[in-house]
């Protein structure tokens, strides 16, 4: 239900190193836990995170069951041009979530 939270600086100088922070809502159920009656709780995790800056993929991560719930992913990139950043999280059970942010580069 919760929308991802994305933090990209609204403005940057061309060539500046910027920090991008993302937080997404997900249980990240490992698949290694059992219920009180002994049944295995099926794995339900985000498996992939991708960030595209205008048309270029600039960051990709593969997530594993060891990643905590509600993954917080932060990384740096170069501010090259004004435009749009698209973020996509995909995972088990058809999980798919996207978010966008815009940046103005001077």
């Amino acid at each position: 239900m919760a929308r991802p939270i994305i933090n990209v600086p609204a403005k940057a100088r061309r060539g500046q190193v910027i920090e991008i922070k993302t937080l997404v809502s997900h249980v990240m159920e490992t698949g290694y836990r059992h219920t009180e009656t002994g049944e295995r709780v099926p794995r339900d995790i985000i498996t992939e995170f991708v960030c595209v800056y205008n048309d270029e993929e600039i960051f990709r991560a593969t997530l594993s069951p060891a990643v905590a719930a509600n993954p917080f992913i932060t990384f740096h990139t170069l501010a090259t041009e004004s435009g749009k950043l698209t973020f996509r999280w995909t995972g088990d059970n058809g999980f798919s979530e996207t978010g966008t942010a815009t940046i103005e580069v001077e």
């Binding site: 919760a2 929308r3 937080l23 509600n70 932060t74």
Partner: peptide, 12 residues
């Protein structure tokens, strides 16, 4: 607030 996962609930 960006790193605090509780923000997801606050936004909800």
């Amino acid at each position: 607030d960006m790193a605090n996962p509780a923000s997801l609930w606050v936004n909800d």
